[in-house]
Design a protein around this nucleic acid. Sequence first.
DNA 1: CCCTGATTCGC
DNA 2: GCGAATCAGG
Length: 200
Amino acid sequence: MSWTDERVELLKKMWSEGQSASQIAKELGGVTRNAVIGKVHRLGLSNRAGGTPEPAAKPAKPVAAAKPEAKKPAKAEAKKPEPAAEAEAAKPAAQPVAAAPAAPQPLRKAIVPAGQPLPPQPSANEISPEALAKVGEVEKRARKLSLMELTERTCKWPIGDPATEDFWFCGLPSQPGKPYCEAHVGVAFQPMSSRRDRKR
DNA sequence: CCCTGATTCGC
DNA sequence: GCGAATCAGG
């Protein structure tokens, strides 16, 4: 298989959509995820469009061992002087997100109000606001899969009201062994704290 | 173990 | 340019 214009375009599209390289490879067919990743790099779009800002630094791999042949020109990687005006402002999230917590897992009903920065109050521990924010974020880009479209590796977090048409599953890539994506795992599996008694 | 992207380097 | 092998991490 060669990188035809169409295939490259699909690659670009899926990549910018946040699809993983393996998913893209699977979709394209005839290529491995390595091929996809390689192509992505060659195309120069290693960074996905305004999606997942990865503040983590990547010093490449300074493997300082068993490398006698240093034929690496040590080319200085000049970072583009990006104006860096990323619209990563504050996240309103003040929307009635209350609909989200239709958790399949033992989840509390109350959500942490968006007023308290979570003070040292051990008792009222719900879900970390960060996790909630992440969920709210991720649900926007959820793949909205139907029940039958779910696979072993797609997030099975339900979104919306099952009694209405506004119901779908997250569908984002789930972590191996887990039923949900990263974001939803965070809210699904609580630190089991205030779960102590059921009373009655 | 499953996965992710990143990099290298022979082709 | 291509991508398998490898690396580095979750």
